[in-house]
Design a protein around this nucleic acid. Structure first.
Lengths: 212, 212
DNA sequence: ACCTGAACACCGTTCAAGT
DNA sequence: ACCTGAACACCGTTCAAGT
């Protein structure tokens, strides 16, 4: 067997020890984030994985890159959920369901709302990035809800990311993640309250909200 | 003149050099917070004030205590504004005006939303604390708006603090404090959208918003 | 190619020694 | 009573030296 012991991650060959260290780091990071929050020291993650801190840096150049990798599956799940909801019969409810799922993810552990906001708002040049696979269908959910007259048309997708992230952050700060869904109910109401004047699915026509 | 050179801060006598150092620290901190945000290193504040870091700790045992002191005037102004607005003819508009003022304060410089949230939510045992002088009249604004039927009755004051703080945080994270007021417009709409069905002052019974 | 110990910088916090 | 230099702990980050 002349071929060296390698494996693949993405499209790059890796030495087996490197690949194993990478996996150990990811497992260690997942546990550490869940236990101590997204601000846990990188030293502790490396220690738990049984590797040097320098090795951690070699595999993951930034805390964010490590965090994003540990969230990959959940982010993909959020994207899939958005795509599935696109065929749901009620566009307004579909959007709400997705926003609540995103919020649940955002408060999964302490300190996550900030990094998650960054990840979701990063416009990666790599079009196949997770971020796009989440945002594209989710933004579509918003458009569909607006076209159905279920949500105000003056709302942009980034407004939703900001509002949900902000709520998640506030709940996280108070160490009361259970408050998050309640606060989101209020925001959901805001999205719908002024939705439309005429069409089938619409809420009743209302006066303009008071912008100043 | 047998009396020692002292001054008063609060109700405690202080040596003149101590009092001067305290003032220098406050001035230095005000400038540093505005320039580098609420996370600026305490070392830099002490350096700029021309005192040792240990002296900073002697006067202000925590970053938050220093921050709160530099915000004292602005917090008092928020309290006064709330009291003034209590005699405004439109309770709904009065509440909105105050929320917008609070939001402006929250995004005054980077990193402020977090500490400000803590300050406003701290239930100090000292009843004369700034926090109470802000929260008491502001909470009254909410009650008044609810009694006038301008705001949903299922909203608590802490919901408002959390929502406004969350919006401020989101805008701060994106380095786009100008987005804050726009996001608040949406939340304001949520407060009002279901407020009332008929009578002038009474909040009519309404269906629950969609909690899940 | 990859891993590691070690160094460096920075920051928060505390304290013994001064006046 | 107050101030200070100095020490300590902790963390992020980088790099020369190993295999």
């Amino acid at each position: 067997m002349p071929t060296p012991p390698v494996t693949r991650t993405g499209s790059r060959r890796m030495r087996v020890d490197a690949s194993r260290n990478r996996e150990r780091l990811l497992a260690s990071a997942t546990a550490a984030f869940a236990e101590h929050g997204a601000d846990v020291s990188l030293d502790e993650i490396a220690d738990r994985a049984g590797v040097s801190i320098a090795t951690l840096y070699r595999h993951f150049p930034s805390r964010e890159s490590l965090l994003e990798e540990t969230l990959r599956d959940q982010l993909e799940a959020l994207g899939t959920k958005a795509r599935d909801l696109l065929s749901s019969p009620s566009p307004g409810d579909a959007l709400e369901t997705w926003l609540r799922a995103m919020l649940d993810q955002a408060v999964a552990y302490r300190g996550l709302p900030g990094p998650l906001k960054v990840i979701l708002e990063s416009e990666s040049s790599d079009l196949s990035s997770v971020c796009v696979r989440v945002n594209a269908p989710a933004a579509e959910l918003l458009v569909r809800a607006q076209q159905a007259g279920a949500v105000r048309t003056d709302i942009e997708f980034r407004d939703l990311i900001d509002l949900v992230s902000g709520i998640a952050w506030a709940a996280d700060q108070t160490l009361a993640p259970d408050r998050a869904q309640r606060l989101l109910s209020l925001v959901i109401c805001a999205l719908r309250c002024d939705a439309d004047g005429g069409s089938t699915r619409a809420a009743a026509g209302k006066p303009e909200p008071s912008h100043r």
